[in-house]
Design a protein around this nucleic acid. Structure first.
Lengths: 189, 189
DNA sequence: TTGACTACTTACCTGTAGGTAGGTAACTTT
DNA sequence: AAAGTTACCTACCTACAGGTAAGTAGTCAA
């Protein structure tokens, strides 16, 4: 979290609060209190909650793409481990869940633009998974039956659910699911 | 939904709204409007939102147990299909998600009693899955590697995530995930 | 050194949320 | 028939949410 400016701090904190309690629970006061500024100052940077929500998705996407770049020359399994690390970090940092999960669980009652933002982000992650799975299969690092697309679709659901259920059932549960997920990359069926 | 009394209608509607928009988005006004009663009438039956939330979990549990009873003499795959039907019905009835999913995604910011209620309910579903998997394996209907517990843990995460991601990616996606989940019951690894 | 811009603050508005107190009409029990 | 109980309603309160308008202190550029 290299947030130097107030604007960056706001989006960073907003992201954390949304991952912690969800879009509807989160509010401007939480950020204002944390930064020792007034509520209205947040509106100066992000006129509406919707604007901030969108910025949070963009921020999250940025981090995801930074991770992509860091591992682009690594072997496929290291890429997957980098993805898992993101999830572990969320989990360990106050039981946060992933951004896609927060917005999907509130999907029916969020502004359209945020719906679209979440959807686009989801497709991005999904494509990254497909590419990673395919290149891993080609290089012989991964073995799995079926298409990479089907597996990626499956992973997205399981990851989203695992970090949420992990909140209730604890770290051991969460670790186990990710371990079992990984095993789907080393199997003939 | 055989809700005759106002009290039953309240909990039934509350359940729907919570599955639709989440615990924090949902409010008493929605129910009051739907039933053409005043806000205060809801407080008469459920003094606090927490009380209603707990009642909603109990209601959901009731439906789950009714399903259990209906299929207790059926073959294991029919039990699984009955579970899936619950999820399909949620999905088709206004993109609702499962109760465990709503409360897990809001887990950090819900009253302790509701946390406990959700946790207990989750363990109940989990145990039902384990039992169903084990009996299915014993009878030769299911083939899967690893323990029934591990598989049940995995299913819980995937189901929770699938119905949420399904909101974003649509019915085809959701169906595909459930289909692939089912395939884990007919595999040697 | 003036004028524009930035980064806020103060002060306020509106809507709505959950919740409560007291009343009342209708049914139910004794 | 009286007394209690149920199922609400009216009227209200408090807190807080998101949002806005107007001002101000400091920076920065011409």
């Amino acid at each position: 979290m290299l947030a130097n400016t107030t604007k960056e701090k706001i989006v960073e904190l907003g992201r954390g609060f949304i991952q912690h309690g969800g879009y509807h629970q989160f509010n401007y006061k939480q950020i204002a209190t944390e930064l020792n500024i007034k509520n209205a100052a947040i509106h100066h940077y992000y006129p509406s909650k919707e604007d901030l929500g969108l910025a949070v998705i963009e921020k999250d996407k940025q981090y995801f793409e930074q991770m992509n770049k860091r591992v682009e020359d690594k072997i496929p399994m290291e890429k997957i481990e980098a993805l898992f690390k993101i999830y572990y970090d969320y989990f360990n940092d106050g039981n946060k869940i992933c951004i896609i999960g927060t917005f999907s669980s509130a999907y029916n009652e969020i502004p359209e633009k945020i719906q679209k933002g979440a959807k686009d982000y989801l497709e991005l992650v999904n494509k990254w998974l497909i590419t990673t799975f395919e290149s891993g299969r080609k290089s012989g690092h991964f073995k799995f039956k079926g298409t990479a697309k089907d597996l990626a679709d499956f992973w997205v659901a399981t990851l989203t659910g695992a970090i949420q259920i992990g909140r209730i059932r604890g770290a051991g549960y969460f670790r186990q699911i990710l371990k079992n997920l990984k095993m789907t990359l080393d199997s003939d069926c």
